[in-house]
Simulated scan of single mutants.
Amino acid sequence: MSGNKSTTSATQANGNVCPICGKRAYSKGGIHPQCAVLQADAARTEELKAQRKLDAETPKESSWSKKKCPKCSNELHVRKKVCDCGHAFF
Results as ranks from 00 to 15, higher is better:
Gly3Met: 13
Gly29Arg: 06
Ile20Trp: 06
Lys80Ser: 02
Asn4Gly: 01
Gly3Tyr: 10
Ser62Phe: 14
Glu57His: 05
Gly86Arg: 11
Lys28Trp: 06
Asp55Met: 03
Asn16Val: 05
Ser2Leu: 10
Leu54Cys: 06
Val78Ser: 09
Arg52Lys: 13
Thr58Ser: 03
Gln12Glu: 14
Gly30Val: 03
Leu38Tyr: 06
Lys28Ala: 12
Thr45Met: 15
Arg44Tyr: 09
Thr11Cys: 03
Ala88Thr: 10
Glu57Tyr: 00
Lys67Val: 03
Lys80Ala: 05
Cys21Tyr: 02
Thr58Glu: 07
Cys35Tyr: 07
Cys72Phe: 11
Gln34Ala: 14
Asn74Glu: 14
Thr58Leu: 07
Lys53Pro: 01
Thr8Lys: 15
Arg79Asp: 09
Gln12Tyr: 04
Val17Arg: 10
Ser62Gln: 13
Lys23Ala: 03
Ser63Pro: 04
Met1Leu: 11
Glu47Lys: 15
Ser2Arg: 05
Val78Tyr: 04
Lys53Trp: 05
Ala36Asp: 13
Ser62Gly: 13
Arg44Gly: 11
Lys80Tyr: 00
Gly22Trp: 06
Thr11Asn: 07
Asn14Ser: 07
Gln39Lys: 05
Lys5Val: 04
Ala56Glu: 10
Ile20Thr: 05
Cys69Tyr: 03
Glu75Thr: 07
His32Gln: 11
Leu38Asp: 10
Met1Ala: 14
Val78Cys: 08
Ser9His: 09
Val82Lys: 15
Ala36Met: 13
Asp41Lys: 10
Gly15His: 05
Cys18Gln: 01
Ala56Val: 03
Phe90Lys: 13
Glu75Trp: 14
Leu48Met: 14
Lys68Asp: 07
Thr7Met: 14
Pro19Cys: 06
Gly15Asp: 15
Asn74Leu: 11
Cys72Val: 06
Asp84Gly: 03
Lys53Ser: 12
Cys18Pro: 07
Lys49His: 10
Met1Trp: 04
Thr11Leu: 08
Tyr26Trp: 06
Thr11Asp: 05
Gly86Ile: 14
Glu61Arg: 12
Lys71Asp: 06
Gln39Gly: 00
Lys66Trp: 04
Ser27Gly: 07
Pro70Trp: 08
Asn14Val: 04
Ser6Gln: 15
Cys21Ala: 01
Lys23Trp: 01
Ser6Asn: 15
Ser2Cys: 06
Cys21Trp: 00
Lys66Val: 04
Ile31Cys: 03
Ile20Lys: 02
Val78Asp: 02
Ala50Cys: 02
Ser27Asn: 12
Met1His: 08
Ala13Cys: 07
Ala10Tyr: 12
Cys85Ile: 08
Gly30Glu: 03
Lys68Asn: 08
Gly30His: 02
Ser65Val: 12
Ile20Cys: 04
Pro70Met: 12
Ala10Leu: 15
Asp84Thr: 04
Thr8Tyr: 08
Gly22Ile: 01
